[in-house]
């Protein structure tokens, strides 16, 4: 049984690794060579592709994406954690309604409010900046729902009661007791918001009209598109784009694992 488990894990891992590897390798080839067959071995065109990418102001755009994602993560985790705590761990009038509200907001398809959102952003005067792309994450329904469910599962009520009886203030409880327990959840949410805001394509496309404020996905779709598409250069850029997220996941997984010992929640 254990052997079977290992084999399955390895096979699936290889399947997961395969496309990522291919993407990296594709970035090292001459674009039209890619059409001759999926490359398994690295090519020799990496420098040229990198030149194409960097020539087009890649680093600046990278910075834009970083700003957007970091700000989005901060905003999203803040509001989501707070409301998650409220709904999951308190009894108050309107709790049920609030929970339904969160779930309802989660169900609104993202494309629904596109035009209206742009209009609103324009009226708020932040039309041609990075703010529209950041603010869309300020109230992140998935995040709120995730926090609600996660908190339900992971924070024992008696712990909170003890703290209250001990005279701890509510904010104090939140910061000193809840947050540490929530580390895995926080890490997960932060990483996901980072990822989603990093790869977001539609919103930046229609809200940002100045090339200098472009984020990475838009930038990449504009690489080498005169009369034919330079997939190789794009793959090189994509690989570089994926690195920060990968790093984040690697770091985050440390927290997921460390959180295991934080399971010392046995009062």
């Amino acid at each position: 049984m254990k052997a079977l488990m290992w084999i399955c894990l390895v096979v699936i891992s290889l399947l997961s690794l395969f496309p990522f590897y291919i993407m990296t390798v594709m970035g090292t080839h001459y674009n039209e060579d890619l059409f001759k067959g999926i490359p398994i071995l690295p090519g020799s065109y990496l420098q040229e592709n990198l030149k194409t990418v960097l020539k087009a102001d890649f680093l600046h755009v990278y910075g834009n994406s970083l700003i957007v994602s970091v700000a989005s993560v901060v905003l999203a985790t803040l509001t989501s954690t707070l409301i998650g705590y409220a709904v999951a761990k308190f009894e108050f009038k309107g709790r049920k309604w609030l929970q339904t509200f969160v779930i309802l907001t989660m169900m609104v398809p993202t494309q629904v409010g596109l035009i209206g959102y742009i209009i609103e952003m324009r009226h708020l005067g932040v039309g041609n900046t990075l703010w529209p792309v950041i603010l869309i994450w300020a109230a992140f329904p998935f995040g709120a729902f995730f926090m609600i469910q996660f908190m339900r599962d992971s924070i024992p009520n008696d712990l909170l009661e003890c703290a209250r009886i001990d005279g701890c203030s509510e904010p104090g409880i939140f910061v000193r007791i809840v947050l540490p327990i929530m580390k895995p959840g926080l890490a997960t949410l932060a990483t996901l918001v980072f990822l989603w805001s990093w790869n977001n394509y539609l919103l930046p496309l229609v809200t940002i009209n100045k090339s200098e404020w472009y984020t990475l996905p838009i930038f990449i779709s504009n690489l080498g598109i005169v009369h034919r598409t330079d997939y190789a250069a794009r793959m090189a850029a994509l690989t570089m784009t994926t690195i920060p997220v990968l790093i984040l996941f690697i770091l985050g997984s440390k927290t997921f694992m460390k959180g295991l010992t934080a399971g010392a929640v046995k009062g």
Partner: peptide
Amino acid sequence: FALPFVLTYAAFQLYPILYS
């Protein structure tokens, strides 16, 4: 605790939905 979420949602996302 619930206020930040509700406020930001009302401020940024409600109008687009109604407009739509």
